[in-house]
Each structure stands twice: as C-alpha cells, then as structure tokens.
Design a protein around this nucleic acid. Structure first.
Lengths: 196, 196
DNA sequence: AGATGGGGACTGAACATTCACTCCGCACGA
DNA sequence: TCGTGCGGAGTGAATGTTCAGTCCCCATCT
C-alpha cells in the first residue's frame, strides 16, 4: 500500500481544496470533505483544530508548492523585461495547468481569509511570500534603474496581478481559449503598462 | 413622514447591500437585514420571493444607478484615448466615492451569481449592460482604426477592468491612498497596455 | 508460536447552532 | 367592524463540532 493512499491528512487537504474550488466555501461542508477524503467526519478534527485551520493549511501548502516552480530560472543574468515576462508566463501557465488550485486561490483571496492574510503581511512586514517578493524586487530594481514607471508598488502589482488573474479567470470560465502565443502577447501588453 | 423612511422595499435593498458589502454573503442573514432595515423578517418576503431574488435585485438597481453616471459626456468628438481615460477615471471615481457599492459588486461578481450572470450575457448576447457596451465599442473601434492592440476582447477587458478593480480594492482595503493624480497616472498606464 | 491485553487512531451518530423561510395574530385605517 | 399590511416567534433543514465506542496493531506473557 502506497503512503499516499493511507495518508489521511493529505487526503483531507486535497478533498477540501477540490470541493472549495468546485463549489466555493458554501459547497464544502465537513461531511462532504470527509466523504471525498474517504475518512470519517471526526477524523478531520484529529488533524486540524477546526475548519478555519484546515482552510488556511490548504492555502499554506499550496503556496509552498508554487514557490519553487516560480523561482526556477529567474536568474539575474537576464534583462528586467525578460525576467518579468518569464514570471508572468510561468505563473499563468501554472494557473491554467492547475485550474482547481487557481479556483481555490481565487476563493481564498476574495474571502475574509485572504484579506486578513494580506493585512497581516503588510502590517508585520512578513517576507514569507516568495512569489510577491520576486515581483517586488523586480519592480523596485526597475524603478531604481528608471526602466519602470515610478508608481506606488500596489498599483504596479495591480497592473500585473490584476490583469493576470482576470485573464486566467476568463480562461477557466471558458470565455476565452488561451494558448502560448496569446499568453505571450498578454505579458507583452502588461509590460507595456509597467515600463516607462 | 417622507416617503423614503416608509418605503420598506428600499430600506431592505439598502440594508442588504450594506451588510453584504461589509461582511460578505455569510455575514448578511435575513434576520440582520431586517433589523437594519427596521422591518420584521417576514416583511422581506412580502417584497422579494426569496433571498436570491433580493440579491439580484440589489445588483440590478445598482447597475441602473451607475449607467447614467458613466455615460455622461462620453461623446464622440473626443479622441479614443481621451474617451478611454475619461471612462477609466469616471468608473474609478464612482467606485472610490461609493465604497459600499464597490464592495458589494466585488462580492457579487466573485460569487456564483456573478458568474451565472456573465455566462448568461455572453450566451444570450444580451446587450443590456451599457457599462460593458461602452468599453466594448471603444475597443472595437480602436482595433478597427489600428490604435489598439489586436487582442481578443476578453484580454483587453482584463487589462482594463482587472487593473481597475485591483487598484480600487487596494484603496478600499487601505493598502494605498489614491488621489486624482494617481488615478490619472494609472489610467495612463492602463492605456499603454492597450494601445498599439 | 500463539494467546492476551492495552493503547490510540478512527468513526459517525448525536448535539448545538445558525439560517432561510412561514404563518398566524395584531394593529390600524376605512 | 372589516380588511390589509406587517411583525417576529417558530420550523425544519443544514452545518460545524464532539465524544463514546470500535477495531486494529503490536508488545508482552505463557
């Protein structure tokens, strides 16, 4: 018997992520999570203090999985524009290749969980989120070099993540069919918005 | 006694919008809506068949209120860029000046209600949403004239609305303090993304 | 080796709470 | 006195959480 099948904790996390992605927080009661994970409802509470903790843990592990993927080959020898586009492309590809994960993240960030997390991060200056840090460094360096518009960071983030998320959402909802060429041209347009 | 105070229907709509904006759909049970509206819980069901109808009605009336505001002085004698920026500025100002309305719209569009509505609109080719139509016409004309990048409409929308919503959200959450100058420069950046 | 006993992971029915929605009686104007 | 618009306690369904009991695994004893 492989470890994956008997690892109930992972099964619960996976079931919770899938159900929240598919049906939103409303459509993921503990009873349903337990059924899909193949465990008893009580078992959930052996691994997580309550549902809030479970949901935050799903998010935390998802972030950990994403970070290494996005760090790959974002080395310093490339130009700012190349690094920017590589990051845009990489994140977009990840979101399109993992639609459930993307839908979960959307649910999460648009809920009190996500807002509270962001507020925490800004107030406590936590530097744990490598995804944001990578882009933040890119922007700060670009501003210093005069390559990027001298706008407040949140606005640059909006020009980047706002567009990215909106396009990815349209794709997962079936309103548009993205391919590598379209993603590349979207990244180009996003760069036009940011560059000086 | 003025009509506003005794108009229970309006009071219910207003209370529902405020509570959903402040606390999300979770934090707006019918009992709470009734208390804030100064009516009995049963009275809600004298005016609306069920909660779904109530919520969709809040959205419908809100859209009706916004449309004329955004149509103002978007006349044809101006250049494409000027009209684009005027629209960006107008919508942003409305969202910042009406934070509760904006928060409600965010909740709405990021919920099954909003997705269902968009899907309906795309499938049935309904042209009822003048807000989208204005921008759509702008984009189509711009593409025809070679002023705007020849990208699929959903991507142009994302470059526009995605950025706009993201910036407005950061403002209402207190992560950034927008003023007219910053809004103008953001509109400029958004135009850079879209223009050829 | 085989039997026995104990520990603890696991289960799911039961519980408390919350919610959307109903319904019956009341107050008030005609 | 009659009728209509309204209120809010009440209803049942759904949900998060708990807890008493089950069952499997393995150390220990004969």
């Amino acid at each position: 018997m492989t470890k994956e099948i008997t690892d109930k904790r992972s099964a619960i996390l996976k079931a919770a992520m899938e159900l929240i992605a598919e049906n939103g927080f409303h459509g993921a009661p503990t009873a349903m999570i337990a059924v899909r994970a193949g465990v008893g409802t009580g078992t959930i509470y052996r691994y997580f203090a309550d549902k809030d903790v479970l949901i935050r843990e799903v998010h935390r592990e998802l972030e950990e999985r994403m970070n290494p993927i996005l760090m790959v080959r974002n080395a310093a020898e490339r130009s700012l524009k190349e690094r920017f586009q590589h990051f845009f492309f990489g994140l977009m590809r990840f979101l399109l290749d993992n639609p459930l994960e993307f839908k979960f993240l959307e649910q999460f960030y648009n809920s009190p969980y996500g807002v509270a997390m962001r507020r925490d991060k800004i107030l406590n200056q936590k530097a744990s989120d490598q995804r944001c840090d990578t882009v933040k460094n890119l922007f700060e360096q670009g501003i210093a070099e005069g390559m990027i518009k001298d706008l407040p960071l949140p606005i640059l983030f909006a020009l980047f993540f706002g567009t990215l998320a909106s396009v990815a959402r349209d794709h997962t909802l079936g309103f548009i069919e993205l391919n590598d060429d379209l993603i590349y041209r979207t990244a180009e347009a996003s760069w036009d918005a940011i560059k000086r």
